[in-house]
Amino acid sequence: MLEQLQRLQTQIGVLRTRLEKSESDNAALLKDKTHNAEQTHTQINHKNNLITQKQDEIDNLTEQLNSLKGTHSQLNTDATALAERYSRLEKSCTDLKNRFQEILAERNELRLLKEKLQAEQQRTQQDIKNLQSERENLIQKNEHAKGKVEAIIQRLSILGTEQDQHAQEIQQLAHPSDSSEEV
């Protein structure tokens, strides 16, 4: 029994040692648990802060996305309006081009007409010069013929014959203004 008692005491000593070791291990584990819990809590808070930041970023990005969608929609509307205006401008440009071509054609026709009229004017002026020259020639011939007729009349008047009276009558007929002055 004594042996058993000693064995029991030895076993109790071993159990005490184990119990102390277990208690110190348990205290260390509790300390580690508390430390790990604090770290985990800190990490959870950090993660929650990160999640809150990310959620704020998501909200900001969502607002930006909505704003950009509105801008995109407005830009599409503006692009459509600009495309329509460009189409109208292109049509107007084509119309102006056609009108310009018509004006050029009219200008060319007017140039041809002007050149034709200038040529006709030059011919007319030349005809006028020719007619004036011919008129002067006819006036000179008329004056020359008149001079001859007067010379003949003077010769007949000098002769003093009956023919002289006829010559005076002819002269009166040739120069009715002279006879009215005499009267």
Rank of each mutant, 00 (worst) to 15 (best):
I58P: 05
N45I: 13
Q140F: 04
Q154S: 12
Y86D: 06
L113I: 13
D178I: 06
K148D: 02
T94D: 12
L61Q: 04
Q121D: 06
L15E: 06
C93R: 12
T124G: 02
G160V: 09
N36F: 14
H46P: 07
E38D: 15
R16K: 11
K47W: 05
L15V: 07
K141Y: 05
L50K: 08
R135T: 05
R135L: 03
A174C: 09
S180R: 05
S179T: 03
A83W: 04
K31W: 11
Q154E: 09
S22H: 14
S87D: 08
S133K: 02
M1C: 02
L15F: 03
S24K: 11
E90W: 10
L89V: 13
Q172N: 14
A79G: 00
K47P: 09
Q39K: 14
I152Y: 01
E109V: 15
I12A: 02
L104S: 15
L110K: 14
R18P: 08
I12L: 04
D32M: 13
L75D: 02
Q74M: 00
N130C: 00
N48F: 13
L75R: 00
A37E: 11
L5D: 02
L19F: 06
L104Q: 15
K31P: 01
T77A: 04
N26R: 14
Q122H: 06
Q132Y: 05
R99H: 14
E3L: 03
Q154P: 01
T17E: 10
D56Q: 08
Q11I: 03
R111Y: 12
Q74G: 02
L61H: 03
S180E: 06
Q11Y: 02
A28W: 07
K114N: 15
E3F: 04
E134I: 07
E23R: 09
T40S: 15
H46G: 14
L131N: 05
I152K: 04
H175W: 01
D32C: 11
K91P: 10
T124H: 05
T71M: 03
A145F: 09
T42Q: 10
L2A: 03
Q122F: 04
A174R: 01
L68M: 01
R155Q: 08
H72D: 01
L96N: 14
L2I: 08
Q154Y: 07
S179D: 02
E106Q: 14
K97A: 15
N137Y: 10
V183K: 00
N130L: 04
T80K: 01
I12F: 03
D127E: 07
R85D: 08
A79N: 01
I139P: 00
T40R: 13
I153H: 02
H144N: 09
S157C: 06
I44W: 08
L68S: 07
L156K: 08
K31Q: 13
A79K: 07
I158W: 05
A27G: 08
H46C: 13
